[in-house]
Design a protein around this nucleic acid. Structure first.
Lengths: 186, 186
DNA sequence: CTATATTATTGGACTCAGTCTATTAATTCG
DNA sequence: CGAATTAATAGACTGAGTCCAATAATATAG
């Protein structure tokens, strides 16, 4: 078996992330160096780059799995009998979403302002969502491609806007689905 | 007079930009170093940072003046007698816009994919537009703030989507206003 | 038990962006 | 001519990200 050969793994994304978030809260994202993160977790800088390809990727770890879940949910819709329209499919996914499943990175999204690489990597996540929505709309009725891309982009923007607004609402915020329903016009 | 004292300026943003775009087309954005740009224009790396605070700022120079023009146009609307709604105000601005006034950077927006700092700086331009739209909508009717922010975000996204689609349409593309009218739903 | 293959960890060198400081060069004004 | 002012520059520094060579820890084959 190939998985049990060679020197066993000691480092993991989770261990590094744990150390990183502690330091981020202490000194902020920007002034926390990769060297510090790695050493705090008990590893070397080189090992950090065995687990993550950048400091920003570490930041988005949990968010990426949430996005993957959303994409799977959309795929499941499409392969079902009567797929919902995009708006309804998003609302269904959002309704099941408790405050406790929101990634640390999203809860602390204000950190984004502090660093260029965070903005860039955040934007690339938004673009990934956008492509998923484009594909979803393409499966539905055949619209003018310009309008289709515009609608996907609008949906992405409204989703992100709603998410950040919901997070800003603080601990007393209700269900995300309800909040999203207000934002997703048409 | 303070403007005529001291050593006269030789370097300018325009000179550096000219050299940069030539190199970008030759070797791409990422593999063109600031040192190369500065030396090609006949200056030192240090002087580059007297004119631009980053490599990305150089890229967006013309685009920033276009955005400023749009913002002025919106401000003029708001201070007039009967301000148009946001959609109409954007369409009016877009209609006067010929292919020749599109910045080099936007025409070559595919370079964005090559580099993180370009994505980040592009995203910050989009956010700037978004804030302008938020302010514009706030002057109009008083809507639910969630819906207002969502609509501003949607408008920003549709505008960018339409712009890139229009650029992709190539030399035969018609007026931008017409293209934008298809994308700006509701 | 020993040799070997395999994989993880590490150190170190390198490039480039961006920041900062001190120095030098070119000009105007008194 | 000298002083003040401002531009250009060199050079050192930090930190991200890449790359490679060396080493350490395991499994397995002989």
């Amino acid at each position: 078996m190939a998985s049990s050969a060679g020197r066993p793994r000691r480092a993991s994304q989770e261990l590094l992330q744990e150390a990183a978030f502690e330091l981020f809260q202490l000194r902020g994202y920007r002034s926390t160096t990769i060297e510090q993160i790695a050493r705090t977790a008990g590893f070397s800088r080189a090992t950090f780059f065995n687990c993550f390809s950048s400091k920003a990727d570490l930041f988005w770890l949990e968010t990426d799995t949430l996005i993957a879940a959303l994409r799977e949910s959309l795929d499941a819709q499409l392969s079902g009998e009567n797929p919902l329209d995009l708006r309804s499919a998003l609302l269904r996914f959002a309704t099941g979403l408790g405050s406790d499943r929101i990634p640390w990175a999203l809860q602390n999204y204000r950190l984004l302002e502090a660093s260029d690489d965070l903005v860039a990597s955040g934007a690339s996540r938004a673009l990934e969502l956008n492509w998923a929505f484009v594909r979803y709309l393409q499966q539905g009725g055949s619209i003018d491609p310009i309008a289709l891309h515009a609608q996907a982009a609008a949906t992405t923007a409204m989703l992100v806007s709603a998410l950040l607004g919901w997070i800003d609402a603080g601990v007393g915020r209700g269900d995300f689905g309800e909040h999203l329903a207000h934002a997703l016009i048409h």
